[in-house]
Design a protein around this nucleic acid. Structure first.
Lengths: 240, 240
DNA sequence: CGCGAGCTTGATGCCGATCAATGCATGTGG
DNA sequence: CCACATGCATTGATCGGCATCAAGCTCGCG
């Protein structure tokens, strides 16, 4: 009889493998990694995976679903710092002080693989490709953040929006999904927070793109009609 | 006879030690770390320590001097992503793709300790406190970047400027320097780029703070007269 | 069905960008 | 030592993009 517990999906079979797992592991090493992350956790839409101030114990790999991360200033302003989809890693903000520095909230019912960080460190001391992988994941996050700074510091509203949409299409494509047809998991307000804009500005941007024939938008359903146009908007001088 | 080569300053004697070195190393481990970073490099004011696209080989610890890091969009806009002073670590942007993703430029004559990254990984596999330290340094950078996003995405011009000055005072204080008396190493334009503002706006902000009795400013010489006022400007609701 | 959360769209206003002129310090060559 | 150039900073005037305020719309859901 099948257990009522969720059926285990091993990393070696996981279709997100190439996104969150180092390549070139031996069978033995793979087994060790699978033991490390044998634990899973479901997070319902709207629930926190963790909050600022929580003890840091584990990193999380998104298996299914969609998350946002956000930081709040002391006076209550919230800044969305990222949107995360399957195969991406959450929680690295907590390493430095053993407490999480931001909130992570599921924007739809989601499931993550739990990776206890002390175990991850221990194993990566013996498996150099895993060690390298951990470093690359953290470095990737640093580079991504620099890109967001560039966006927030030097782009105008419609450029930001175009860059945001392009980024989404690329990440969907990397997962074998349609890059032109997507359902946004977040509200206009959350997009605005991420992009340093008000929700009305985001909405107007979408409307403008629709009028220009770049997008079709129906609520959160977005279809990219002219990816090239998006690129030229996001990066005017190069693509004009 | 003393060698004309620079006299070696061992990490164990370096006054930046507690900033860039893990605590609790045994003598033997400390020796290994010192061997790892035995190499130094001087960078004259205005010169690049590295540029976007350069092969990534090493991390760098600032020994003396001052750096900025910046990313450029394809159409040439530049965004300053950080200012680095003694004891801080440069180069982690290069790990993910084995190429540097940003530029690092010395804003005054500077010297860095060179830490070959493959050696650092090898050693950190054997010295767990070093491994942990590397992770913390990268995590700290991620958290810092989130703070900059919050600043760029949700603060107004004078709030940004106040937060920037407060951050500088804190870092100077951590180095045993006067938190109230500082010489800015960067131009108004570079401050503006970092804060997502134009240089005129930065200048006007300084002038306003001077009128309000919060600062004294003479060119790049800045004296903080009222740190509490700066805090209440940076974070209006909490400190008002 | 009716409520409420989220979205769109319009009117207005303000903050910071832009444009422009001047000031100031440093350096360089006559 | 002065004349001039150059880079950086300050300050004023004006402009424009996005925020703000406000009203109505859509859709999912109890």
């Amino acid at each position: 009889m099948i257990r009522l517990q969720e059926a285990k999906v091993a990393c070696s079979n996981c279709n997100m493998r190439e996104l969150c797992m180092p390549v070139g592991l031996s069978d033995d090493e793979m087994t060790q990694v699978e033991r490390l992350i044998s634990n899973r956790r479901k997070t319902a839409r709207g629930e926190h995976l963790y909050q600022a101030g929580d003890d840091f114990v584990s990193l999380f790999a998104v298996r299914t679903g969609f998350f946002k991360t956000s930081v709040a200033s002391e006076d209550g302003r919230e800044q969305v710092t990222g949107f995360l989809m399957a195969g991406e890693i959450l929680g690295m903000d907590g390493i430095v002080s053993d407490r999480h520095a931001c909130d992570a909230v599921a924007l739809e019912d989601s499931e993550v693989c739990v990776m206890p960080f002390d175990k991850l460190e221990e194993l990566s001391a013996h498996v150099s490709s895993l060690q390298r992988h951990v470093h690359k994941i953290m470095s990737r996050e640093i580079v991504r953040d620099q890109g967001v700074m560039l966006l927030l510091g030097s782009m105008r509203a419609e450029e930001r929006l175009a860059a945001f949409l392009l980024n989404l299409t690329q990440r969907l494509q990397a997962r074998g999904l349609s890059p032109s047809n997507m359902v946004l998991r977040m509200t206009r307000e959350e997009i605005g927070s991420y992009l340093g804009l008000k929700l009305e500005t985001v909405s107007r941007g979408f409307s403008r793109f629709v009028n220009e024939g770049v997008l079709e938008v129906q609520q959160r359903q977005v279809r990219v009609l002219d990816q090239q146009a998006l690129k030229s908007i996001a990066n005017p001088t190069v693509c004009a």
